[in-house]
Structures are given as C-alpha cells and as structure tokens.
Design a protein around this nucleic acid. Sequence first.
DNA 1: GATGGCCTAATTAGGACTTCCGGTGT
DNA 2: CACACCGGAAGTCCTAATTAGGCCAT
Length: 443
Amino acid sequence: MLQQSELIFDFASDHVSQLGGHSDYPAVIVEQVPHPHLLAYSGLACEQLETEEDHQQLLKVEPHESGEEETMETLIAADSLLNMDCPDSLSLEQHYSQTFLSSLGDVITTPVAQVTVSAEGVVGAVDQSQWQALHTKKPSAQLQSRKRGKKARHRRAESPTPDIIVKKDKYNKGGNTLYLWQFLMELLQDRQVCPRYIKWTNPQAGIFKLVNSKAVARLWGKHKNKPDMNYETMGRALRYYYQRGILNKVEGQRLVYQFTSLPKDMIYITDGDGSKEEDDDHDDNSVNDEDMSEESDDSTVASSDQSLEEEDLHPPQKKISSGPVRAPAAQRTRPASKPSSQRDTVLRPPSSLIQEQHLPIVSAEMLRTLQNLQKVQSLQPAGHASVFKTAQLLGSLCERQAAADVAVDSKGVPEMPDKKSHRGQKTSQVETPRLMPLTSSDH
DNA sequence: GATGGCCTAATTAGGACTTCCGGTGT
DNA sequence: CACACCGGAAGTCCTAATTAGGCCAT
C-alpha cells in the first residue's frame, strides 16, 4: 500500500496500455515532490535570512530595469539572497510553510502578478518517436561501452527531457534530484530570480540569458549543496547538455543558452512589458484553449511566486515589472485583449488544497500532469487509490477554480468555451504529450 | 531438513554532475 | 587582464537493479 509520503501518482505505461493500448505513449509519472527538495530549491536554496528585514527585502519584487546590466540593487539583492546563513531567523522554508498554511481557505483568489502561461510550448511539435530519437538515442558504441558487468540490467532512467516528468520512485527518499536544466527552467519561472538573475531573451526559441551568472551558479550550488559551485563549474554541466541535446549555445552571445525544447506549459516571465510577445496573444487558435486554461492554473503554482505574492508588505496588486511573455502564437489561447490588470489576476495555486491532502508544495509541472491525468477516467480507485484521490482532488480544485474564473471572467473576459467543456470532459485517453523541440532559427 | 516467500542489507552499474585543467576568443 | 567559453579526463555522489543472507511458515 502506498504511503502518503511515497508515490502518489504513478501513471505509467501500464496505465496507458489499459487506456487504449498505446504502449508507445511515454510514461507520464507524477509523484510527490519531496518537500525539502522543493523548499531547498524554491527558496532558492537560501537556508536562512539574517533578519526578517532581509527576508522581506529578498521577497520583495521590485520594478526591474529591463537592461541587462547588473545594477547595484541587483547585486545587493543577489547578495542578500545568497548569503543567508542565520539559522534562527525566518527562513524561506518557514516562509513557505507560513504562506501555504495561511492560504488555506484562500486557495484560488489571491492574485498573482503578471504571469502568462504558454498553451503548448514553443515551436512546432514533434512526435514522440522523433523526440526519443532526438533525446534518448545514444551512439551504439557508447551504449556498448557501457555494457559490462555480469548481467544486463534495466537502464536507469536518464535525465528527463523537458515535458517528460520522470518518476522519482520510492527509493528516492527525500531525494534531491532536480536536474540542472530543470533548475534553470524553474528559475525562469520564478520571479524572485527571473528576470533578475536569469531571464528569457527569446522565449519562443527557448533562449535565455544568465543575467547574473554567478548568482545562478551559487543558487545551483546551494541547491546541490556545493558551496564551491561557480559559473565555470555550472557551465561545464551546461556544456554537457550540448552533447545530450538539451541545450544549445547561442553563438556570439555571452551567457546565453537555448533550450532545445521546452515543456508545453512553461511559465514565461520577462522583464519587459511583453509587448512584442503580446502581439502573439492575438492568435485565436481555439484548439488549445483547453491547454491554456489548464496552464493558467499551472501558472499559479510557481512556488516562490506564491510566497512573494502573499507577503503582506508586497500586495499582489503591486506593480511588478515582470511582464508576461506568450508562448508561440499558434498555441496561445487566452485572449490577448484581456487588460493587463486583469491578466495580473491569475488564480492562486491550489497549493494549500493539495498540501492538505498530500503535498507540502506542488510544483508547476506536477500540477500540470495532475491536470492531464484528470482527464483519465479509467482510473479506478481500487487500483490507484492515491491517483484517484488526487484526481478527485484536482476535480474539486478545478471546480473551485472555475468558480473563481467565472468571477474574474465576468469582469470582462469571457471564459473560454473549450476550457469549460474540458472540465466536464470525460475521456479515457491520455493526452498525448506535446513535445516542443525548439528550432534554432529564432536566433 | 527442504523448500519457498518475504524482507533487508550489501553490492554494483550507471547517470549526472563536479572538479580540474589547458586552451581559445572577446 | 578578466571573463566567457570549450571539451577532455577523472572523480564524486546518488540512484536503481541485482544479489545475498536471514527469518519464518509450510
């Protein structure tokens, strides 16, 4: 029997096959994200703050110049962010606990500053076989060279590529395995660091820049408990991603890298007003409305955003320079005509709701998968109690969110029809993961 | 005592970095 | 000169699969 602390979601190939025999579907597995892990990350690995004042300062999101220069303010903030060693003062972890707990009963309504979620990812989709060919195939010689030892054993799951959530199984007790590329993606979805330390330069192409490479490296080092981490070391890891097809280097631009692919429902935060990207908003591809609605929900899960927004001293209505960036036009669904003030009002994450039941913190990716899973109606409570329970949870969550959504939409933005229909949709098919390899033509 | 099932700890292969280095380019 | 960047080589850390051994029931 599954323990609550263990796997809560195991939606793997066996489930898929029961859903229609598409054994070629990639397994999409979600499990509980270890609390300390996410805290360690989402707190940007900063254990403690020296004073509460520092803490508040850290959490404060201030208008940020869109320029790429490091301002003194940035450096100071980075320093305060990165030098938090006082064990007695309020920690970010505490902060998260407080904010999550305090949000109980106020799950959905607290607005988040401008965050726009892509509907489908970035550039044209590729099918799964292509994706696997791109990302999992290794040179045969390389594979052979690894064949040694007594017995052929199952290959260990390699680093998941974007949009594939790899199960951290029950053996991974309190595991801290957040891959670097995941870490960077998380940073890019975290307004505490994006665009301050890392930012998108071309979200459509998956191109981002390490605005403050040292800070990012130190955050990574904090996360990995490698105090000596520096950009050179982290850069080596990044360079290994070239070989693995996860990252590309943007030539001629320092500190600029490109994800070869992105999750279809990445949350994009930019430092600009997003005017350029806003143009893409006008795309009315209603096919993806459902995705958009889902991902709007997802956008609310950005962990550190939550802590940020719930700071009393920094009400969510506060002007935040980070503007939304849209995913590729063809995949956008939310009407671009929505006033920015309303776009700012993104529904709160269901974190506390889920936390009550299972999770201390729910990652955006996790929630996305949960929401996808919600479509799966063939799950039986007996066989997948936790899964079923979580699906039920999400169902109620979406209902609550729908109610709030209607409230918001009634003020000027009509609810997307597909979004509604999706909620009531009963399907026994797994949503085919949309994998979004990026082209390098954008840069 | 033999057998089988279950559990746990130890072992081991392999993935993902990390560290170090020498070198090039800006 | 500082910094970004590159990639080779070796090492570390961690995870997962496998194996071995102990315990218990039949």
